[in-house]
Design a protein around this nucleic acid. Structure first.
Length: 848
RNA sequence: GCCGGGGUGGUGAAAUCGGUAUACACAGGGGACUUAAAAUCCCCCGGGAGCAAUCCCAUGCGGGUUCGAGUCCCGCCCCCGGCACCA
């Protein structure tokens, strides 16, 4: 470009005197320089005026005491490579990072070590900042977020109030895992086989009033939008399954006897109304409100015992562990609305109160769970669907669950196929008030209440006269008070309610005595909107600035782990949809593009603290440098699939960077070599390889196939140095540019030593390629005889079948295989392959 | 059990609109340069047979489609991740 504009190296940026590659010193120097020059930071004006904004987001980490995990580094590096690539394509890339520092882990850690989270978190954050800086991420340190900072959670609380105001937050009774010994609520992960992980006491279910967000209102939109957002397939599938829309019908089974007879009816949800003639019994969840009404006196004692037993079970065991079917007969019966038959009513814990209506019609002939249950308790099994070749009397060895077939044993519906029958049966029952077509979702409302200490207080005040009153926005934040010992005590009340002057407060509505909500909110709420905050951290009077938000959002690219495929991603989509409906955002989806990265393992095994096989990043960086570490992480497998970190493998990428350094610094052309025409007269083969490499790397980096992009760069450098030759300036400079996203420090240094000034990341410095120069003159065509390779021929690109065939037949080995055979057919794939399909010649009578 | 993703050399892995399987790298072996070491450069490296040319076998297993299958179809086995007995 302007080679002579400035060829001197600034005095505060000394070039290494001995020309040795010293990554540790070099990286520290460039990190200082990036800070000093504000290379990666935006001012408010720059955010306002960016011409080509690109919001490159990665999932912010939880700042643990152990320091940055390689899993984090892997994810951040992959995202950073992409951000740097986009920057080199001319985008204004905003790449912020923050800290998701509330939550159960800090609380547990505090209980174990006695260090209060308030004291613990700043040190952890400082250590994370140091490590994040050290790996060479392009982070804008002027726009970070810490969810535990009142300046941040003020707006988390504000968000709660907006949702509340629009009817999307409500209180409902819901079960929690309760440890009677610790007197505290446990998360599912704290329950180990039905017992409290800390004290081993059996866990109970308790029902308490909690705050929920009505995410189910958005179920259809959350599902429908999946059709047009650019996300990893696996993530879309996970969300689709999680939302779990199912179309079916609610059917009513009138109670036949007992106290409820005549007035009450059991309503079941089914996706298979066509199988109703096979419904030989009904099962209620043990908690179902009609259990009392159907239960006969003779059975009451046993029913009560069973209910107590399931009630004592924790939520995890109830949902996961139970394999063999248990249940008891209530003594009551319902009437099957299709055929008027009396069917027995059972209760069983495989029916969950939280899904559908909490009651099912059991069709053992066509549902495996019902089949198992019927077998265990000797209940009748009737076939009502027949596959081709079967009829009404074909024996059912296992439940026939296929979604197609013809109805049998179903009265006047016999002979209809499954889909016709569904519609006909629902329509007929609907006419007599015994059914309604219905859609249900697996998704439930989002419970955001946490009966804990380390989280943002939910901004609600409870008043005896006015009920739940939102804290006025001007009173935000509701500061989380410092509680020295936040452990639950014998009183059983929340730790926050023990802070009298915080807990007791005047009602904002009537001024009377009132108390604060003592639940704090779920950490998923903190992370459901953090990306909105990043570009607006310069504002303390609004959560996100409308103008800045219009310019920078939605997020252009989001990279993160698939462990958040469902909850975090779904919750943040919900929050954005709700804010959009409130008119506070003008888009419906937070992330235009999402890519899930893979997991890394070490030497074939999962890393864990207990196995002592975690990779500690600092020593690796000290030995090889961050550039090598980054390059190796991106090389060891496809980014979206993860890979196996083998300690010895790092020497490959390290050697590559060494050779690259050497090619620029101590090669024949050294730093003094400028754009000199003679020196740059490029070897034709090397030049072709260069353009092919740029083409390949450009395509692969853009699609996150980093491992093969790196392999292509290695191949190119090998070619350019083959036989001990020294690459010219023109041969090596484009490689420095391509390496830059992966190894930014060495790239900056080599860029400078190649005579450039300024940062390689300032400006659209990604190398272009010339398609005309990628073209090969000759093609190596494989020659097959009957599909087996018998030789290869070199022919001009685009050679016709005739030309290739002639060349092929001239090959001795090919000729040998064709000899005495009759060529029946020739398959020619230009520039790739020629296949002679041959056979023994038809006997013409000559013989011997 | 269900859902999702995978099984390719000694190892991490390439190659998927069906077209020369094993790119790149690690480990291993041999050589050049060097007083030596490091670094660098060159050569070999799936299995079997053969002096060689060459041939046969090989992408988890068994079938199938095709001129041709790691890739597509059917039926299995194993590993990893997630979860919700979802009616």
């Amino acid at each position: 470009m302007k080679p002579h504009e400035c060829s001197s190296i600034s005095p505060d940026m000394p070039t290494e005197g001995d020309n040795a590659y010293d990554p540790v010193a070099l990286e520290a120097r460039w990190q200082d320089r990036w800070d000093r020059d504000r290379t990666n930071a935006f001012t408010l004006d720059e955010l306002r005026s960016a011409r080509n904004p690109f919001f490159n987001l990665m999932m912010f980490p939880y700042p643990s005491a152990e320091g940055l995990h390689v899993g984090n580094i892997y994810a951040f590096t992959g995202a950073d490579v992409y951000g740097r690539y986009k920057r080199m394509r001319g985008y204004d890339v905003f790449e912020p990072i923050g800290f998701d520092a509330f939550g159960i882990h800090s609380e547990n850690f505090a209980l174990k070590t006695g260090v209060h989270p308030t004291e613990l978190i700043p040190g952890n954050v400082a250590n994370f900042r140091r490590q994040l800086r050290r790996i060479g991420g392009m982070f804008d340190w002027d726009h970070t977020v810490d969810t535990t900072d009142p300046e941040y959670y003020k707006w988390t609380q504000w968000l709660f109030l907006q949702l509340y105001r629009h009817g999307l937050a409500e209180q409902k009774e819901a079960p929690v895992n309760w440890c009677p010994s610790c007197m505290t609520v446990l998360a599912n992960e704290q329950v180990i086989v039905g017992a409290c992980e800390r004290c081993g006491t059996g866990v109970e279910q308790r029902f308490i009033r909690q705050w929920f967000f009505r995410i189910t209102e958005y179920a259809d939109k959350l599902l429908d939008n999946l059709r047009h957002i650019d996300w990893s397939d696996t993530t879309i599938k996970a969300q689709r399954n999680w939302i779990g829309r199912s179309e079916g019908a609610e059917l009513h089974f009138p109670i036949a006897e007992g106290s409820g007879a005549g007035q009450e009816r059991v309503t079941v949800f089914t996706t298979r109304p066509d199988t109703i003639f096979g419904a030989t019994y009904v099962v209620l969840a043990p908690e179902h409100p009609l259990v009392d009404a159907v239960t006969s006196d003779a059975c009451r004692q046993e029913v009560e015992a069973y209910r107590t037993r399931t009630g004592a079970m924790d939520l995890v065991a109830r949902k996961k562990i139970e394999k063999h079917k248990t249940g008891v007969f209530t003594g009551g019966h319902c009437v099957n609305p299709a055929n008027g038959e009396r069917v027995p009513v059972w209760i069983a814990d495989y029916v969950l109160m939280g899904y559908g209506t909490g009651a099912i019609m059991a069709v053992p002939g066509h549902d495996e769970r019902d089949f198992d249950f019927a077998h265990a308790f000797g209940l009748p099994i009737v076939r009502v669907i027949a596959a081709p070749g079967e009829d009404a009397s074909t024996r059912l060895e296992i439940a026939y669950e296929y979604p197609t077939g013809t109805l049998v044993n179903s009265g006047r519906y016999d002979g209809l196929d499954v889909d016709e029958a569904k519609a006909a049966i629902v329509a007929d029952l609907e006419a007599s008030g015994l059914a309604e077509a219905k859609v249900t979702y697996r998704l439930h409302d989002w419970c955001i209440s946490r009966q804990r200490y380390w989280g943002p207080p939910i901004p609600i005040i409870h008043c005896d006269d006015c009920g739940a009153v939102p804290v006025p926005e001007e009173d935000l934040p509701v500061i989380l008070p410092y509680v020295e010992d936040f452990r639950p005590d014998a009183s059983g009340v929340s730790p926050l309610s023990r802070v009298r002057d915080w807990y007791e407060v005047a009602c904002p509505s009537c001024g009377g005595g009132a108390t604060r909500e003592t639940d704090v909110s779920d950490t998923f709420l903190d992370s459901a909107w953090y990306f909105l905050r990043y570009p607006s951290t310069d504002f303390s009077d609004r959560a996100f600035d409308p103008e800045i938000t219009r310019r920078w959002l939605p997020v252009d690219c989001y990279i993160g782990g698939n462990e958040h495929a469902v909850l975090h991603l779904l919750y943040s989509r919900f929050v954005v949809m709700a804010l959009n409906d409130m008119g506070l955002l003008d888009f419906e989806e937070p992330y235009d593009r999402f890519r899930a990265h893979g997991l890394i393992i070490r030497e074939g095994a999962k890393m864990s603290k207990s196995k002592g096989n975690v990779i500690v990043p600092d020593p690796v960086i000290e030995r090889y440098g961050a550039d090598t570490f980054r390059l190796y992480l991106m090389f060891l497998g496809p980014f979206v699939e993860g890979g196996d970190y083998q300690d010895k493998g790092i020497s490959g990428p390290h050697g590559f960077l060494h050779r690259l350094w050497e090619s620029v610094v101590t090669g024949e052309h050294g730093t003094a070599d400028r754009d000199d025409a003679a020196a740059d007269a490029m070897d034709q083969d090397v030049e072709r390889k260069l353009h092919q490499t740029i083409e390949k790397v450009t395509e692969q980096v853009a699609t996150l196939r980093y491992n093969t992009a790196i392999a292509a760069m290695m191949e190119y450098l090998n070619r350019a140095r083959a036989g001990g030759r020294s690459p010219t300036h023109a041969e090596i400079e484009p490689l420095v540019r391509m390496v830059a996203p992966f190894a930014p420090h060495i790239a900056e240094e080599l860029w400078r030593r190649l005579g450039r000034t300024g940062s390689i990341f300032d400006g659209a410095n990604w190398p272009p390629f010339d398609p005309a120069k990628t073209a090969e003159q000759l093609a190596r065509v494989a020659v097959q005889v009957n599909g087996r390779v018998r030789g290869t021929v070199s022919v001009p690109v685009g050679a016709t079948e005739t030309v290739v065939a002639a060349a092929a037949q001239a090959e001795a080995n090919v000729a040998r295989h064709l000899e005495g055979k009759e060529v029946r057919r020739v398959v020619h794939i230009p520039d790739r392959l020629l296949n002679f399909v041959v056979a023994e010649p038809a006997a013409v009578g000559g013989g011997h």
